[in-house]
Amino acid sequence: MTSKKTRLRAAFAMLAALALAIGVAACGSSSSSSSTGGSSGSTEAEGGGGAIAENPENGSVNLTIGSKNFPEQEILGEIYAQGLAAAGYKVKSDLSLGSETVAHKAVKSGAVSGYPEYASTALTSFFGLEPEEVPADATEAWEKANEEFEKEGLVAFEPTPFASANAVGLLKTTAEKYELENVSDLEGVSEKLSLYGSPECRERIDCLAGLEKLYGLKFKSFHPVDIGLRYTVLEKGQADLSILFTTDPQLSADSDKFVILEDDKHVFPSGNVLFVTTPKVVEEAGPDYEKTILQVQEGLTLEVVQELDARVELEKETPKAAAAAYLESTGLVG
């Protein structure tokens, strides 16, 4: 257990070092920037460097941050809520909104000020795109989603660095045996390997359908399996390959056992997170609102989110505690 916890802390250790480096660089540089008007910003640097500074002017603004009711979403909701509170806003949270449909209705009705949504979910569930129509590029997916959100009187801020998406996973020993790093490396090898995935995997572009159609791969066999068994089939030797999720905590906690292949053709739809809110809230909350949202999510790389998910799902920390640890380790809060 000690070695596993040590691995789980590696991502946060790197973040702490980065925060220190940013702080040193900031101290060594001259301040030549000027305000663009309005109230003073809640962050020390436009690009997100440095700690969040409390702005007393924000104290008159009440915000309710929502999220769907599963661990990764709850962690994100806590990060946004705690970051905004550090900027001086009066913040409440509602981290049990249920499905994306419920969360979508909540922000439209004003029940919550904003919530995190995956770009691919928004484009397919709300706006009717087929999975293969969702841009793999995070910026393109955000621009498309924001265009559609604006038609509904909503707005989506820029995406997180990490994406939560399907991925081809396997044991590290299998990857080493066949020298696999990218999905394209499966060419000429996939015919020897069995693939396991969810029952709908056959038809999904970010699953078997895309691997066959867009990568041109053929597998020895495909077996549908409950997603809760996606790691079990690898560990028991039933599957050579299994469809995993990029933010699975096992990829951080057991990084010496499981790996995922790089989607080098960018076939799988973008699952980067967008913070969805309303123009009314943006106007009432002032410039620190969007600035703080973007600042707290800047350090949310795939490795860091895997670590956060591992803390909550495997180590049984609360989302609130995991979010606080993230904000402290990045130097965003003291």
Results as ranks from 00 to 15, higher is better:
304 V>F: 02
16 A>Y: 11
280 K>E: 15
32 S>C: 07
32 S>R: 05
46 E>I: 09
44 E>C: 05
205 I>S: 01
138 A>G: 03
30 S>I: 14
275 F>E: 02
308 L>V: 07
50 G>M: 13
94 D>L: 13
207 C>R: 01
213 K>R: 06
5 K>T: 10
274 L>T: 06
46 E>T: 04
38 G>D: 02
83 G>N: 09
33 S>G: 04
36 T>I: 09
69 N>L: 13
266 H>R: 08
330 T>H: 09
191 E>W: 13
19 A>T: 09
81 A>G: 03
329 S>N: 09
266 H>T: 08
129 L>R: 04
176 E>W: 11
26 A>L: 12
133 E>A: 07
317 E>G: 00
29 S>I: 12
26 A>D: 11
75 I>Q: 04
96 S>N: 08
14 M>K: 04
185 D>A: 02
131 P>E: 10
129 L>I: 07
299 G>P: 00
244 L>G: 00
290 E>A: 09
325 A>T: 06
172 K>H: 10
155 V>W: 13
68 K>W: 14
94 D>R: 05
161 P>R: 08
181 E>V: 07
244 L>T: 03
23 G>R: 06
43 T>P: 00
288 D>K: 04
178 Y>K: 02
131 P>Q: 12
181 E>C: 00
192 K>I: 11
238 Q>R: 02
285 A>H: 01
92 K>G: 05
86 A>L: 14
10 A>G: 04
234 L>E: 11
113 S>F: 15
309 D>P: 00
268 F>I: 03
124 T>Q: 10
17 A>V: 12
26 A>W: 14
163 A>Q: 14
6 T>P: 00
181 E>W: 07
262 E>L: 08
247 T>W: 06
16 A>D: 11
145 A>D: 02
